[in-house]
Design a protein around this nucleic acid. Structure first.
Lengths: 216, 216
DNA sequence: TTTAATACTGTTCATATGAACAGTATGAGT
DNA sequence: ACTCATACTGTTCATATGAACAGTATTAAA
């Protein structure tokens, strides 16, 4: 049965839990020998078998012959384990994004990381996600304030009305993406800020998918 | 020099960016040979040297002799202490908070949970934290929109100007906490909504500490 | 009864991988 | 001139690691 083939035994749940936990706390997946050691298996084949079953059932992926390439897949329902938490991703926070994009300039000791589970923000784990600390109040008209954290995804196709981060004057700026009469430009959501009509090419660094604001 | 020892060369930034990207998109860190291959190095020592430099400067950690154990650190303070990710907390989301408060009726398949690390939202793990899906636009004046998730902490002393969730007409509502001339009341941040002057006792369910908004 | 999945032990093998050593070249700082 | 960090090439070595093969025992389904 299908429902049968997806259900996990107790042992398999333990193994999956261990792999998830290691990935989350250590940042890297455990090796098969580490799995065996953790459960006291005297043979790593035991671990390998469990991993094989978990892969067959769709809970894990791996790349063959590649060390520590186990990856827990986000799965909708685990009937045995009702409280499954989605995959936690670490989103790097940039104070401002210079031209190189992957570039990081060291800001004055800010915390550089936001950790959230993918479902909370509704982000796709495949695309490159980053956070940008909002500077200024050019987007107040869309209720994005100075000091907010904008969560953006790189490599997404912006749709008209989306908030995007674009590179203007070597500074990453948030603006609304507008498309009208076949022309695209960027609109500031504050009367005192100018719109931006690109001279030639529009460099979109990311499309805004979520916002985080801290109070107090 | 300190500022010197922490600054990255262009090449080092590229390498760090590649490692970050691989870790995020692939789920596992690249091996040294993969780094070398990506940049066209004919020797893996080139990659190893860059990684060594990045480790020395505090941008990476690894566990010796362990495959794919590279870990990009959040742009951290100079404590060469490996920066741990904060504790992940699961915050229950209420569509509306009934009178009993701790009452958990209807858990229905909706996303009833937000998982974030404590530092991202700046919450204290001791107090009870919950999330409230914002209904209506009574707080638009403070840039809190319909559909936003308000993160609140129970058992906090509200200070004047804080946004709080209070129980009004058996419904949990967000308002601004105001104290003037020794009297306290709740102010709506939208002209079309009434202020609330408590008849006798003000039941504050939580003080707003953060906000999460999803786009698209 | 037979088959298949689970849950292991014990061993061997090929290789992916980190680490080290020996070089070369360039540029910046002193 | 001298040092030092950067930025590489080329090679070798030890081992961490995935994968495969040969078993045993238990349990559940067909």
């Amino acid at each position: 049965m299908n429902s049968m083939s997806l259900s996990l035994t107790h042992r398999q749940q333990e193994v999956l839990g261990f792999i998830r936990e290691q990935q989350q706390t250590q940042g890297t997946a455990p090796s098969l020998r580490e799995v065996a050691a953790h459960f006291g298996f005297r043979s790593m084949t035991a671990a390998a078998d469990h991993v094989k079953a978990l892969r067959r059932k769709g809970y894990l992926t791996h790349r063959p012959h590649q060390a520590r390439s186990l990856r827990a897949l986000p799965l909708a329902v685990d009937t045995h384990h009702p409280v499954e938490r989605g995959r936690i991703v670490d989103i790097p926070v940039y104070g401002s994004i210079p031209a190189g994009f992957a570039d990081d300039r060291r800001q004055e000791g800010r915390e550089g990381c936001i950790s959230v589970d993918v479902e909370t923000l509704g982000i796709s784990p495949s695309s490159r996600t980053f956070a940008l600390e909002v500077r200024g109040n050019s987007m107040e008209g869309r209720h994005i304030l100075n000091g907010d954290y904008a969560i953006l995804e790189h490599g997404m196709d912006p749709r008209p009305g989306d908030v995007v981060a674009a590179l203007i004057d070597n500074e990453s700026t948030l603006k609304t993406f507008v498309k009208q009469h076949g022309k695209t430009w960027l609109k500031a959501e504050n009367p005192s800020y100018p719109d931006f009509i690109p001279a030639q090419e529009l460099v979109i660094q990311g499309v805004m998918v979520a916002l985080i604001r801290k109070y107090r």
